[in-house]
Design a protein around this nucleic acid. Sequence first.
DNA 1: TTTATTTACTTAACCGATTAAGTAACACGG
DNA 2: CCGTGTTACTTAATCGGTTAAGTAAATAAA
Lengths: 338, 338
Amino acid sequence: MENVTIRMLAERLQLSTATISKALSNSHEISEETKQRVLALAAELNYVPNPYASSLRKKSSHTIAVVIPEVADSFFAEAINGIESVAQEKGYHVLIYLTHESFGKEEAILKDFQSGRVDGVLISVTTETSSKAHGLAQLVKEIPVVFFDRVCEEVTAARITTDDANAAYNATAHLIAGGCRNMGLLSASRQLSISNRRADGFRQALADHQLPLTDNSILYCSNDPAATQQLLQTALQQNHYDGLIATTEKLATAVYQACEELSLTIPGDVQVIGFSNLSTARFLQPSLTTVSQPAFDMGHAAATVLFKALKSSSFPLQEQQQVIPSSLIIRNSTKSGL
Amino acid sequence: MENVTIRMLAERLQLSTATISKALSNSHEISEETKQRVLALAAELNYVPNPYASSLRKKSSHTIAVVIPEVADSFFAEAINGIESVAQEKGYHVLIYLTHESFGKEEAILKDFQSGRVDGVLISVTTETSSKAHGLAQLVKEIPVVFFDRVCEEVTAARITTDDANAAYNATAHLIAGGCRNMGLLSASRQLSISNRRADGFRQALADHQLPLTDNSILYCSNDPAATQQLLQTALQQNHYDGLIATTEKLATAVYQACEELSLTIPGDVQVIGFSNLSTARFLQPSLTTVSQPAFDMGHAAATVLFKALKSSSFPLQEQQQVIPSSLIIRNSTKSGL
DNA sequence: TTTATTTACTTAACCGATTAAGTAACACGG
DNA sequence: CCGTGTTACTTAATCGGTTAAGTAAATAAA
């Protein structure tokens, strides 16, 4: 059975392809009766329009791209959920690309978007993405782009973020209230804006409480789990931290593992706070105090803003800057101030 | 700046579009010198071919679809990871669709694929998908389809699964060895093949150990977390299970929650095994004994098989039936047989 | 009654790349 | 010197919708 095309419908009904096309798009130029006949035959033959023919002509694909570092992270998984919910509602298709934190891959992916493959892009940049992000800067000029969570500060574009500095400040203050005096912040990147904002909040909290910032206060971890584990264990042994803030989900579990290996108790020896959306955080041993980011909402908001721009080209997309607050959920990996 | 097309390259070089096209695809019909000139200009003007023009003409999109119930589940997240790794290597694009366990949504999504939007489909069906899956049966006749994990048994197609019956049997046997005599299996669906296979393994293990199968042995949970929680708590109070097997990740955490609410200790009052790929399983309170599925490998295998079919139409895709074993990882939510 | 307008179509160009078929120029074997 | 190949292109059709422009007939306005 051949694929059913608009031409086949036209021949069967003795009409032109133009009439069929217009009937299917419910054009006012077509009589009600003809529309019914077209619709009936289309249903009967199970006609499904070829999206590529349409995209080619209309220069719009009804497709968006989501570019993220990884998917096996509850933040990104939930964000995709939020994005997809909006896309499905609007009848858009979602292409997904994983960069695995590689700037090179990210650039290659973005370059492809210059082809018109997608109408818009939602992106959370890699830990390696920096000011030399030429592909990004270029892309933003060509199609609507929305950054979510991990933005590239050098590029002017819509941004959906959370209050990273604040969240880190509050987390740090909570540790201090719980008695910590020698804290470490585990960071995933020196370049990433959210990492830097979180570090800012951390530093500010230390300063506000007259605590010193040392070379050991901020630990930059790599994307390699084994190396990170090594780094963590060494650092824990040398510096005797009494509190740690893990700024990514993977780092949070890495801390649990390191403490287990070194037989350090949480929160007895080290108090721990993780930036994480793990639904299992409350069931961890001990239950993990988290900075919980509004992942679904951020994805939803990012997609919503993007679709506004796709609908109306006059929508001032680049000015959209939403900050959705994170919340500190206190559990048993930290001591409440007494 | 306009989009650069093949025609623009042709005009600048005083060649026909055909020559450009062939030069770019490294055709033997084109002289080495011309190829170099074309490539150089293409690079200079940052030419990126329009994928839709190409797809329309070639009737292939270099795009595959992944249809799954949800993404915020470590099994599916890891499976996507496996799929994407293969797709990226092959230069394919990945469209993602979430069904949220709705059969209606699934059918609508699959119908769209009749348009030629994608060259192949990787799917894990919903808990509602049953024998009346007409869209699926239809689709399999038209384009390459690979089921992974959740297959539709009524439809003949390639399948990448894990040894569900075996895994459930072993899990059950482990509980029995740990002293359980009144076990419950939490199932996500009456129709889903993997659920039924797991139930089969559970029943077989009971039979082999002369333990009775009652109406309470298998609990069918819905997709609604609140309802599931209610069901679980009621069942736990009424039936005094000494062992539970949660056949999905969400159900595993639901059990932890229910036990917490009812002040039941794990594994003292109830021993628990979860089908899950949670990286945090080992850090849960208590650490969770899991049936760990090879999620990444299954995704990788499914994509690999699909691409073989896409490369060679003579590849006997429908005969591909891989079973990748799951493993039982024993932790502290169960008692080792003593 | 004549002109203007509306209705319901059709014709044909178009989106941008691919490819079957055609051609001119040149080489080569007999 | 002729026929056959080979090389390196070009021409034009094609994929399947979309849409600007055109048209014939019916209806309304003048």
